[in-house]
Nucleic acid binder design. Structure first.
Lengths: 155, 155
DNA sequence: AATGAAACTTAATTATT
DNA sequence: AATAATTAAGTTTCATT
């Protein structure tokens, strides 16, 4: 699906505040409320926007510690197998397979360092895991879900 | 601030769908719409919820490639200095200082591998960066902003 | 094909108990 | 906190370009 400048402006407005009204967004970009609604409905059905969520302050909810854990896996472990296994651990908030020595990289969020340690132990107990290599987050500098600029040009 | 079970249920409902109505949330948890609104207002002013955002499909917007980049920095480089520098690169969507050999870990999102390479070159050109070590994401298995379970108990 | 204006429906918000 | 009353927004329809 092709997004024009207005679509990208709407996406930007919704990323900033998913609860803005159609009229507010329309005023920003020079469109009427119904026109904005129609475009948002289209962005939703096309899959460009997948939903709306609350930004929560993890520390306010008691999740104070983050870590990144590299996974080194047995010979022919499939990405699907890793995904299935790590999705059983709710503290894993992000996981991907990567190039390089390690096979996968997990991002985990836990209550404290003790809790992080327990999660790593549980993950390391998965049968396909040979070893892990962890780094605790000392201070977070940036945390945005998406790139912080204009969408790419149609060039 | 203390969050009770109802607050945590409200946060959960808003994380799932930030555009649900107060009445919908109230029905799920057994509260009237005005009561839900009062609690959400309180969660916002206390900072437990920091805002509402759209979940966008990066690939739909042309951002198809992700990488993680470890930064090895000169002796006494402060976290603030790293944060300031990397925030100038909009493709850096997450950054933190970490324990271990590397000083910082960046998560970048770009249009393609060529674009990733350009960003790494730009970051590596920062005066405090000695060297970098990158891993390209092959396949994403999990991507959630928060832990996928109930909030921690007050225990 | 997409928009804006108006009509209509539903939700947000305030006041009251 | 719930109910009721009011205000504002969401949504549909329709005429227009």
């Amino acid at each position: 699906m092709e997004l024009d400048a207005l679509d990208r402006a709407i996406v930007g407005a919704l990323v900033e505040d998913a609860r803005s009204t159609y009229a507010e967004i329309g005023h920003q970009i020079g469109l009427s409320a119904p026109a904005v609604k129609r475009r948002i409905d289209r962005l939703l059905s096309s899959g460009a926007i997948t939903g709306f969520t609350a930004r929560v302050e993890p520390s306010a909810l008691g999740w104070t510690t983050e870590a990144y854990v590299e996974l080194f896996c047995r010979g022919k472990t499939s990405p699907a197998e890793i995904g299935l296994a790590v999705s059983r651990h709710p503290e894993v908030i992000s996981a991907c397979t990567i190039t390089g020595e390690a096979d996968a990289l997990l991002h985990i969020r836990a209550k404290d360092v003790r809790h992080v340690e327990q999660v790593i132990e549980r993950v390391a107990a998965e049968p396909f895991v040979i070893r892990t290599k962890s780094a605790i987050v000392l201070s977070r500098l940036i945390d945005t879900p998406h790139a912080r600029d204009a969408m790419p040009q149609s060039s």
